[in-house]
């Protein structure tokens, strides 16, 4: 996969997690407790995607230095 895809995925997760944090705090303060967990799960999944994408990007990026 092209390195630009890794960048795109990581910045997509940043954007989604900004929105998830906003929705989570809004639901929590509004006592809509049943909505907090789904938002939180999306946030954690996106954090995981960001991390594993980073690991893949790192593998590709630093392989070029070794050539």
């Amino acid at each position: 996969m092209d390195k630009k895809w890794y960048w795109g995925i990581i910045f997509f997760t940043v954007a989604v997690n900004v929105i998830m944090l906003q929705l989570t705090t809004r639901a929590y303060l509004g006592r809509e407790f049943e909505m907090v967990l789904p938002y939180s799960i999306v946030g954690v999944v996106m954090a995981g995607i960001a991390f594993f994408t980073f690991l893949q990007w790192k593998k590709v990026e630093y392989k070029e230095d070794e050539k």
Binding site: T24, S40, F54
Partner: peptide, 27 residues
């Protein structure tokens, strides 16, 4: 820069967890 972006994404995502823990207690 990319490493910082990954850190920011993970920090944002994981910072929602305390809210869900408190929410489950509130339920």
């Amino acid at each position: 820069f990319l490493k910082s972006a990954v850190g920011a994404s993970m920090a944002l995502g994981l910072s929602t967890v305390p809210f869900s823990v408190r929410a489950m207690m509130g339920l």
